[in-house]
Amino acid sequence: MANPDPFTTRNPFTDVESPAVSVTIEDLSKSFGTVEVLKHISFKVEPGEIFVLMGPSGSGKSVLIKHIVALEQPTAGRVTIDGRDAADQATREKVRIALVFQAGALFNSMSVYDNLALYLREHRIANEAGIREKVMRALQILSLEGAVKKFPSELSGGMKKRVAIARALVMEPQLMLYDEPTSELDPVMGATISEIIATLKDDYHVTSIVVSHDRDLALSISDRVGILMGGELIFIGPPSELRHPKDPRVDDFLNPRIDLKNPRFKKLET
């Protein structure tokens, strides 16, 4: 059923509506010692939007996403979620934010079922019957019913990613953050994960911020794309603008040409 309000999350479990949130990054800088990882980053993600943040390895994408869930504190600037400071404990209590980690970060000592049930149990969201219903619903959405009793060590890379998404989903999030959701996956599984992210946005209107290297994912499911390079945001705009980028750095990042006569690694050495 289509949701009448595009900025409202219709929860997949309770059918209760809760507003999707906006995320605003204001002049954010982050340094580790003398190394400046993020330099005066500013952008806004609108409610219900899929925003894909791309950039080469080490450009500060994962550090940026960690500021949104307060796992890192900014050196300067701030991050707000619907106007509330992301670093405040009260914000985390009021806004449900879920982060899908690059490696899944599943609890290795727990079964898939318990991984999903932990949040619901700890926050006393439902009784055991209710928890079972919500967990099984999340597993069903991601076609993981068969993995319910398995432990993370028994799962493939793609299944781990899907379990991590299912675990995020039971939190009934207003904001979903994905850190490299398609990395280390084969192309088909990468496409499946992209479809899942787009479906969650379409069906439940969750605001999504995706950190990824995956050009196909960015071009096919994003509403807007940001490109981070050397700690600076060098591009922000709709994916259509990336088909013929004007900035040579963006072009080189998205369409790298293999030049055997003048290889890149030799330029890096000098």
Binding site: V69, L71, E93, F101, A105, Y119
Partner: peptide, 21 residues
């Protein structure tokens, strides 16, 4: 190992304090 493999970070994003559990 929970810290290195980001399980502690996952708990914090779920608003479950590691000190509690």
């Amino acid at each position: 190992s929970m810290k290195v493999y980001q399980e502690i970070d996952a708990l914090e994003t779920m608003n479950i304090p590691p000190a509690r559990i």
